[in-house]
Design a protein around this nucleic acid. Sequence first.
DNA 1: TTGACATAGTTCATATTGTTAACTATAATT
DNA 2: AATTATAGTTAACAATATGAACTATGTCAA
Lengths: 160, 160
Amino acid sequence: MNYVNTTIDIRVLEYQANKLQELISELHNCCKERYSDEAKAFKMPQAELRCLMLFEGHKYLTGIQIAGLLEVAKSRATVIIENLEKKGLVQRSPDPNDARVKLINLTPAGQRKVREIEEFMFELHQQLLGQIDPAQRNGVINALETLRSSMEALKAQLNS
Amino acid sequence: MNYVNTTIDIRVLEYQANKLQELISELHNCCKERYSDEAKAFKMPQAELRCLMLFEGHKYLTGIQIAGLLEVAKSRATVIIENLEKKGLVQRSPDPNDARVKLINLTPAGQRKVREIEEFMFELHQQLLGQIDPAQRNGVINALETLRSSMEALKAQLNS
DNA sequence: TTGACATAGTTCATATTGTTAACTATAATT
DNA sequence: AATTATAGTTAACAATATGAACTATGTCAA
């Protein structure tokens, strides 16, 4: 490893770091827009949509669980649940085992809405996949997986 | 192409679409968190940080340009610029060629802040790159590029 | 040249997303 | 029984964002 190679290596690293920054930022913007469109399509705030989707694979959730999964304060969860209840998409009932807890579950209307949203999202991602050359699809997915791991590793490192 | 292969193909597509959805959603969450941390680190709202960074490569910007680049309503841009002006990071001056227009540019304090933010972001992405196996770095970047193109192509297709 | 329309920017009302802190009620622990 | 912890609610506030109304210019065509 001589002086010239070291310089080139540093330039490559700089180029790659900048490229990564740019690409991640653009993907993030794309997602933001997509989530905003989705909310408009369903005429519902994004937070409520996200909350509904938490019930995939859960019959009941508590307020604390919802706050944890949405990564928001429990007071925020209270308000989101309240609004979904007003729309008749979820219902609250007391937990027979703990009077502090309220069990929240989807109403039939809520279940229908979740299925609609699932289909919409699945359709969208099928179409996205359709834009990617079949030969590259697995590569893209693996690269995203690598990136996700790296971001999580970095996060863990920075928080310690 | 017989019945069995078609079925398998469909299953692969479903798997990939779901995986893509999951990974993109996780990356998006990671970014959201990162931007929120950045804002905390600089004790400044995210919108103001983003606005400052627009001046990379521009001496002057107008309100309309800023609104366009940030993809927000011009009324929103007015407020962001006002707040940055209060902090002494940008200044507004009349456009000598058009009395409707105000030219906005960084103050020396704003320029220093931009350099700080640039360094912070570059450092972060260098560290992220450091988490990725060197042999995979170009692959990840190329995959992201592919994904970005696909997302933009899909967006264009859906908007037409 | 003047009247119609377009553009830049501001202000205000409103909506959404989110936090922190104080509070009530209940459960668990010592 | 007293203390502490947990679940949920409420209220005050901050940040992000839009749309409509308004002012002040600029442009263009009859």
